[in-house]
Design a protein around this nucleic acid. Structure first.
Length: 564
RNA sequence: UGGGAGAUCGUUCAACGGUAGGACAGCAGACUCUGACUCUGCUUAUCGGGGUUCGAAUCCCUGUCUCCCAGCCA
């Protein structure tokens, strides 16, 4: 045991907190398995936008490479042109970069290797390990067998090498219609692993590819492609998610049959998060059906959505580092993500006063028409972030929730007879209220103590509460977009997305008020609206109209007390 | 049902035959010009049953439960 941290051992690969993949790499480096090299890759298919689940994989792959002085490639797995688009390629490049990772000059595409893959397919045909099959998709399915029964061999399985070579060449040349033939691996129709029952390597598909256009009429399947791409790039550790465990024997079969460099496939559990969905298919549905405004809707778990919401790459990286890597298949609680964004923003975001749901306060004994400027700190713990001036006058707005005509137990904000502090300003005491015909309070009348200017009374008098405010005359009106989780707390497990959506996932406050100092703030500037939450300036903001997104609420002890 | 993988506080990750620990969440308190932050303390776990061992979360056997697989998707 260490002696009270006297000679603290520096963190080494052996002593730092680890995970099973890191352990494998450490072990491999010890045995010299890959010559001490660490080369990983992040291989998305460009068929949608990246989400937080991908962030876990990105941080893992790039993080491991960085830690061990290795490299990590960005490679697009673009073997199915019917689903892939340049729009997705661009967004993925942008998102990985935003997350803070650099693939240097190693941006690759599976489609870069189409010709090589084709040549290797010919090699497998020549080795008697691949054949052209004329069965239809339906027939292939019917002959695949079941969990308990072996499949039956294709009648085309034993064609001669010459015939196979000719047919395969003609598949490429366009002699046959889509779906009429495939190139299959000759492995084992009786294997308990379905992936080994003569898997399809190539299909005939007349679809325009986002990079190769109409050059190809046949496209390689994932299983045939992935290991070889890894091999070409010299990947040492090919990290993927759990559902590919069953594919590993096939991955190995291809690189071994071809006699090329064999990377090691390692599977880990994909990220699951409560209160949101991380399936590309469902996210696409949300976009298509208009439940959200787009892939970058701030409620979306996509990197572009979460970025617009105000999450930072630093927070996301910290989150990914904290969730660990295993094969357990668990679900992370959303509050852990919120914890990390609060932690990051608490350290960096400038404080500002904004009233999201305003109610008018009139200081009866404050001179009409008078304005003064009060000093406010931009950050309570960071004097280097400076001070700013906040205008004060007779008519103010405070948060509606900060006033109660009849205070509940333990409520110590403003109510008739109660004295509170206006942050950085004065002590005020509520003396009366004005109501409209519905009995709703429209004005709260107070008196202030001029001696308490700046926020403290010379007589040492204490107040229980400090509330935030803006001057009605000086405040900017802005639109506050208040977000909650996309899905209901106890969302029913079903494919019907509509029934799972949280109806209050977005609440727009069009008449929110904010101190004038924020005027002109650039999009994506982060603020803490004191006592309310962390917000950032939305892309929709213009010079005339400020729009802010609530990134995350501040922790709210009062809300818990009030609930009891 | 055949194959593959997994099971440790509420959640998640660690402990790699030698004191079950951290983070988040929760609870209680201190501090506070943010009911924020910070700080202090507390609650709670080795899936069941056998074995091996001086000693088992860890090794062995057995049972149970959960996840993945029968695309010409990735």
């Amino acid at each position: 045991m260490s002696t009270e941290g006297l000679n603290e051992t520096p963190a080494t690969p052996e002593t730092a907190p680890s995970n099973f993949i890191r352990d494998i790499i450490i072990q491999d480096n010890k045995t010299g398995k890959h010559g001490g090299r660490v080369h990983t890759r992040f291989p998305p298919e460009p068929n949608g936008y990246l989400h937080i689940g991908h962030a876990k994989s990105i941080c893992l792959n790039f993080g491991l490479a960085k830690e061990f002085g290795g490299k990590c490639n960005l490679r697009f797995d673009d073997t199915n042109p019917s689903k892939e688009e340049t729009e997705y390629v661009d967004s993925i490049i942008n998102d990985v970069r935003w997350l803070g990772f650099d693939w240097e000059d190693r941006l690759f595409y599976a489609s870069d290797y189409f010709e090589q893959l084709y040549q290797w397919a010919i090699q497998l045909i020549k080795q008697g390990q691949a054949y052209v099959c004329d069965l239809t998709a339906e027939q292939v399915r019917e002959t695949r067998g079941t969990t308990t029964e072996p499949g039956t061999e294709s009648p085309y399985r034993n064609r001669s090498v010459e015939v196979n070579l000719d047919l395969f060449q003609r598949m490429r040349a366009g002699d046959f219609p889509d779906g009429s033939r495939t190139l299959r691996s000759k492995i084992d129709m009786a294997s308990p692993n379905f992936n080994m029952r003569d898997p399809v390597m190539y299909r005939i598909l007349r679809a325009e590819h986002h990079r190769t256009g109409n050059d190809w009429l046949i496209y390689p399947m994932y299983d045939y492609t992935h290991g070889e791409c890894d091999s070409i790039e010299g990947i040492t550790h090919s990290i993927c998610t759990l559902e590919f465990e069953d594919h590993r024997p096939l991955y190995d079969w291809y690189v071994e049959s071809l006699g090329i460099h064999r990377p090691q496939q390692i599977e880990f559990d994909r990220l699951n998060l409560t209160n949101t969905m991380l399936s590309k298919r469902k996210l696409l549905l949300l976009v298509q059906k208009g439940y959200v405004s787009g892939w970058d809707d701030p409620r979306m778990p996509t990197l572009s959505g979460i970025r617009r919401r105000g999450y930072t790459p630093e927070a996301l990286r910290a989150f990914c580092g904290s969730i660990g890597v295993s094969k357990t298949n668990g679900t992370i609680e959303f509050p852990l993500l919120e914890h990390h964004i609060r932690e990051d923003l608490n350290a960096r975001a400038a404080r500002v006063m904004a009233v999201v749901d305003p109610i008018k306060v009139i200081i009866d004994n404050y001179p009409d028409g008078q304005t003064e400027e009060l000093e406010a700190a931009n950050h309570p713990d960071k004097p280097e972030m400076g001070m700013r001036k906040v205008p004060f006058s007779k008519v103010l707005y405070i948060e509606r929730d900060d006033f109660r005509e009849v205070p509940p137990p333990k409520y110590y904000r403003l109510f008739p007879g109660q004295e509170v502090r206006l942050r950085y300003a004065y002590f005020i005491k509520c003396v009366s209220v004005v109501k409209d015909s519905n009995g709703e309070v429209t004005e709260v009348h107070c008196t202030y103590d001029p001696a308490s200017r700046g926020g403290n009374s010379p007589d040492g008098r204490k107040v229980k509460s400090t509330i935030h405010w803006v001057s009605a005359e000086h405040a900017l009106t802005f639109e506050a977009r208040l977000y909650e989780s996309l899905l209901l707390e106890d969302a029913p497990q079903s494919d019907d997305i509509a029934t799972q959506l949280n109806p209050t996932s977005l609440v727009v406050k069009a008449n929110a008020k904010i101190e004038p100092s924020v005027k002109g703030a650039a999009p994506n500037t982060h603020f803490q609206f004191e006592r309310v939450g962390y917000f950032n300036v939305d892309l929709d903001s213009t010079d005339e109209k400020l729009v802010c997104n609530r990134t995350v609420q501040l922790k709210d002890t009062w809300a818990k007390i009030a609930k009891k």
